[in-house]
Every structure is written in C-alpha cells, then in structure tokens.
C-alpha cells in the first residue's frame, strides 16, 4: 500500500469490477481535445484506408452510411480517469471496411481532420473490436464528441478512439501519434493502467 492520506475515506462509488484500476464512474460525457473542434462539412467528408503498397480505399459519407451498421454498447475509459458504462453507438465495423483491403503490415496510424493522429496495432482494429461511429445515444454524433465520424476502440483508453477521423495509414513501422509522442503510453490498455510512457 502507498502513502496513507490521513482522514481520506473516499466516495466508494458503484463500478466494482467493471472499473479498470484508477478509474471512477462518470455519468456525464466529458470532452477532451487538444485544439478547436474542426469544421467538417459532410459533402466533403471522406474516409480513406491507405495500404503499404500505395493503394487507397475511399468512402464518402453516403457510401459509409450505406454500409451495414452495428450498434455496439460498450464501456469507455478515458486516461483522465473517468469511465462511462453502457455507451450506445451506431456505426460501421472496421472489419467491414477492411474486407477488400490487402495488407501484410502490423501497424495502423489513424489520422483526423484537424491534424490529430494516434497509432495502434492493426489487430486492435479488427475482429469486432473497432468501429467508425456516427451516432451516439440515437442522435447524430456531435462535433465536440468527434462528429461527423469518430473511431471507436473501446478496449483501449479513449484517446485511441480518434475524433473527426479521416483515415488509416497502414505501415510497417509503428509511428507514435499525437499523445503518444507527448508522454502518453504507446498502447494504452486501461486494464493494465498504461496511462503514460513507461507504465
């Protein structure tokens, strides 16, 4: 046990085993971003997957929303300590988008409108683990929460779920993204409390 803070008792909120270490349960939906909310008009929106061979797969907004949608209900965990249970999303599984993508690399660099980037192993985007989400709680995804479309990768800290997502670059090398080069952990597993570099 660490240092005891005299007189501290704590709130001991609900959450139990569903809360990763060091997290607390939040009922609101806090917003965290490093800059202004980008303005992304839907008629110019597109999403791309760029492979290591220089092939690009593209989707416009009508093309994305015409794909089969899923409605995942997931717990999300922000590195700033809040977790939120049973969040309801609607979007397209990355498995669907990767159906016709041929690649043999291991890493994905995700990039967003506004310049944000984040990185993760490609396998963390596949097999039902990630979505491009465009609705939250039955409503259009608000710009401040990443609308029109954000990545949703709920098994990692939420900064990996890039807001305003624009594309994924598949690379042989792992390229640390925005927070990953600013002292945060490269992988970000909340259950192993991988908040910061070296955790």
């Amino acid at each position: 046990m660490g240092i005891i803070s005299r007189g501290f008792r704590g709130r001991r909120t609900e959450g139990g085993d569903r809360l990763p270490p060091g997290q607390y349960l939040e009922h609101g939906f806090p917003v965290l971003s490093a800059g202004p909310t980008p303005r992304v008009p839907l008629d110019r929106w597109e999403f791309a997957i760029d492979t290591e061979t220089g092939q690009t797969h593209r989707w416009t907004w009508p093309e994305l929303t015409a794909l089969p949608a899923e409605t995942p209900t997931v717990d999300i965990h922000c590195v700033t300590k809040w977790s939120k249970f049973d969040t309801n999303w609607e979007g397209v599984s990355l498995d669907t988008l990767f159906e016709d993508v041929e690649t043999s690399v291991e890493y994905a660099q995700v990039y967003s409108y506004g310049g944000y980037t984040t990185n993760l192993p490609l396998e963390d985007l596949l097999d039902g683990k990630a979505w491009l989400a465009y609705r939250y709680d039955g409503e259009e995804l608000e710009p401040r929460h990443g609308g029109p479309v954000r990545l949703l990768v709920p098994h990692l800290y939420f900064w990996k779920s890039a807001k305003w997502v624009r594309g994924i670059r598949l690379t042989n090398e792992d390229w640390p993204g925005f927070w990953e080069t600013a002292g945060y952990h490269n992988y970000g597993d909340p259950w192993r409390e991988q908040r910061y570099e070296g955790d």
Binding site: G28, P30, L32, S33, G35, P36, G115
Partner: peptide
Amino acid sequence: APEHVRTERFGPSG
C-alpha cells in the same frame, strides 16, 4: 489558425 489554438477542457464532473 487552428494549430495556434491549444485547448484544455475540464469535464462536467472532474
């Protein structure tokens, strides 16, 4: 320019 505007937001609870 957006790249000159750095932000830090506090959530509703914190």
